[in-house]
C-alpha cells in the first residue's frame, strides 16, 4: 500500500463516525480499513459516503464472512463480489481471519476457533491458495483471539506458521489478539511473536479489549488500547520492516481526538522502530 509521508497508521471506517471522519481536521489516518461485507451492494447515502472516503483515503479490506477455516465449500459467488469490490476501490490489502464463521451451511457472523490440527492446516492451505488464485492477489490472514482451543494437536504459533508458509499468504499480525490470547492461555506474548513467520507480516492490527474476569479477556474493539499492548506493539515493530498498522475501534466510539491520540502514539513508536524512510510495498 502506498502511504504518504511515512505515515503508517490507519483506522477502521465505521458508519458510526464516517461523517465526522470525512470532514475531520482532527483525525488524520494514513488509510482506512473496511469490511467489504458491510459495503458490497450498498447504494444511496452510504454508497456516497464510501465513495467520498475512497477519494480521500487509501482503502484496505478486512473480511468477516469468507470463513477460510470452514469445513464448508468456499462461497465463490461471494468471493467474486469481493474481487470486484477490491478492483472498484483499488484495494491493495485484503485480509481475513484465521477462523470460521460459517458451518453446516449456516453463517454465524462471528469468529470461531479452528482446531489446531494437521488436517485443518492442509485444508486451509488449499483454500487460501484457491482464494489467492481467484483474487489474483495475496491474502493476509489474521491471528484471531480465542477463548478455548478445540481438539488441538499443535500449538497456535505452529498452526499459524504452517498455514502461512504452506499457502504463501501474508500474515496480518494482530498485536492485541496476541496479548489477549497470551493472557487467556497463559503464554509469553513476545515468545509467541518470535515464533511467527515475521518475514510474511504485511499488516498489523491494534485494538482495545475488555478484561471480564481474573482469567478472561474478550477482544471487544470497544475500549482504548492499553499500555501493555502498546509495549507489545513497540516490541513487535522492532522485529519487522515497516507495514501499515490499523487501529480498530468498532464500539463505544470516543471523541475523535482520543482516537487521534492513539494514532499519534503509534506513529511515535514506529518513528523510532522504523527510523529509515520506507515506501511500503
Amino acid at each position: 500500500m502506498q502511504l504518504k509521508d511515512n505515515k503508517y497508521i490507519g483506522i477502521g471506517f465505521r458508519k458510526d463516525f464516517s461523517e465526522e471522519l470525512l470532514d475531520s481536521t482532527v483525525l488524520k489516518p494514513a488509510f482506512i480499513e473496511l469490511a467489504p461485507e458491510n459495503w458490497i451492494g450498498m447504494g444511496g447515502y452510504w454508497k456516497k459516503q464510501l465513495d467520498k472516503a475512497a477519494e480521500k483515503f487509501p482503502i484496505s479490506c478486512h473480511g468477516l464472512s469468507l470463513s477460510i477455516g470452514s469445513p464448508d465449500d468456499l462461497d465463490l459467488d461471494f468471493l467474486y463480489k469481493i474481487k470486484k469490490f477490491i478492483k472498484d476501490y483499488k484495494v491493495q490489502i485484503y485480509s481475513e481471519h484465521l477462523s470460521y464463521a460459517k458451518c453446516d451451511n449456516a453463517h454465524l457472523y462471528d469468529l470461531l476457533p479452528i482446531p489446531f490440527r494437521k488436517d485443518a492446516v492442509k485444508h486451509i492451505i488449499a483454500r487460501i491458495k484457491q482464494v489467492q488464485e481467484v483474487l489474483e492477489m495475496p491474502l493476509a490472514i489474521e491471528n484471531v483471539s480465542y477463548y478455548t482451543p478445540v481438539a488441538a494437536e499443535m500449538d497456535e504459533a505452529t498452526f499459524i506458521s504452517e498455514i502461512v508458509n504452506g499457502s504463501g499468504c501474508n500474515l496480518l499480525l494482530d498485536v492485541n489478539n496476541v496479548y489477549v490470547n497470551s493472557f487467556n492461555h497463559k503464554y509469553n506474548a513476545k515468545e509467541f511473536i518470535k515464533k511467527l513467520p515475521l518475514n510474511k507480516v504485511a499488516y498489523i492490527h491494534m485494538a482495545g479489549h475488555e478484561q471480564i474476569s481474573d482469567t478472561v479477556i474478550i477482544d471487544t474493539h470497544g475500549e482504548a488500547v492499553i499500555d501493555q499492548v502498546f509495549d507489545l506493539f513497540e516490541y513487535t515493530t522492532s522485529l519487522l520492516k515497516p507495514v501499515p498498522v490499523l487501529l480498530e475501534r468498532d464500539f463505544n466510539i470516543p471523541e475523535l481526538e482520543e482516537l487521534q491520540g492513539e494514532i499519534t502514539r503509534m506513529e511515535t513508536i514506529v518513528s523510532k522502530t522504523w527510523k529509515k524512510e520506507h515506501a511500503i510495498a
Binding site: Y100, D104, L112
Partner: peptide, 17 residues
C-alpha cells in the same frame, strides 16, 4: 483434506452457538 473428526468438532461448536 479435512478429517471427519475435525469437521465434527467444528460442526458441534457451531451448532452450540
Amino acid at each position: 483434506l479435512l478429517k471427519e473428526e475435525t469437521r465434527q468438532q467444528q460442526s458441534k461448536l457451531a451448532e452450540y452457538c
